[in-house]
Simulated scan of single mutants.
Amino acid sequence: MSQAQLMDGAGLARRIVEETAKRAAALTGRTGMAPCLATVLVGEDPASVTYVRMKQNRSRKAGIESRHVALPAGTTTAELVDTLKALSDDPTVHGILLQHPVGPHIDERAAFEAIAPEKDVDGVTLSSYSAMSFGLPGFVSCTPGGIMRLLDEYDVDPAGKRAVVVGRSAILGKPVGMLLLGRDATVTYCHSRTIGLSSVVREADIVVAAVGRPRLIRGEDIKPGAVVIDAGYNPGNVGDVDFDTARERARLITPVPGGVGPMTIAVLLEQTVTGAERQLGLR
């Protein structure tokens, strides 16, 4: 069997952002107000600082105003909630991104729920998760949303397929499983404590690896001809899938980096403009 075709998330993301920039320019031209994404960061974790700066830069290039709120590491849950509620009440802010993790002393769920659903462009609130689960209008979690766009780009129809999601986080594993289920896939959730993980993965037509364990999924675990989505990102640019061996068996596979990562930011920007259009009465 020949090597798997790479799923070019970077290229697709560029096209999404280009279209998003056109929509942002049109909105600004019609209303005199640019779409605005507010980012909130607690503390100074180097990785989080880098991610937020990258999102700010990408926003500006797409014609989206970027407003950043930096809070000290000792910020309490109540203080963070107040900050997010104030942004939710600000009519000049159209999307809110709380960079996570926020620190063990903060109730992250309480913080997320302080974000107004119409501004939850990162898809982290219970309202957004419910909408995803029931196929209702709303914002999807950005990484799962990006994964579904990649599947569509490469003509992968989940209907009737066996999909195995390795990971159960609230912002990636759980929602991507619900999105796949909504597209008529038969979904199995696995995680780091799953007994016989390899044997379950071997049955999958679509594998989504999102557990945060470098090279946990090996090539021998991949069903020949399967589609492999590696949403893991570990030190050294290593995903959750052993790429070299998995590529020998899969039909399609995402690289790390350049696969899922760029799609996450593209969906975030796209949803910010959608949020602005809705809030300004243009959609």
Score class of each variant (00 low, 15 high):
I265Q: 03
L181D: 02
R213F: 06
V69A: 04
T77C: 14
G196R: 14
N57K: 14
T254F: 09
T264R: 05
P35A: 08
K223T: 01
L180D: 04
G182L: 03
E270T: 04
E18L: 11
A204D: 12
I206H: 05
A47H: 01
L269C: 08
Q279P: 00
P72G: 11
D89C: 00
V49Q: 15
L150W: 09
A38H: 10
V121E: 13
I222S: 10
G182A: 02
I64N: 07
I229N: 08
A21F: 02
T50V: 05
R202A: 15
A131Q: 11
L180W: 04
H68E: 14
P46K: 06
E108V: 15
I217G: 06
V238G: 01
D122N: 12
V241W: 09
K55C: 07
L151W: 03
D244Y: 05
G32R: 09
L71V: 04
A62N: 03
S133E: 01
L87N: 02
S128R: 09
A34N: 02
V81I: 15
C36L: 02
A24N: 01
R58A: 14
A114Q: 11
V164R: 11
E270G: 00
L172A: 15
E270S: 13
R14A: 13
H105T: 15
V201W: 13
V17Q: 12
T264F: 07
V228L: 07
A114N: 06
P214F: 07
H68M: 09
F112V: 06
G123Y: 06
S66I: 05
R283T: 12
P257H: 01
G138N: 00
S48H: 07
G145E: 08
G29Q: 13
I16M: 12
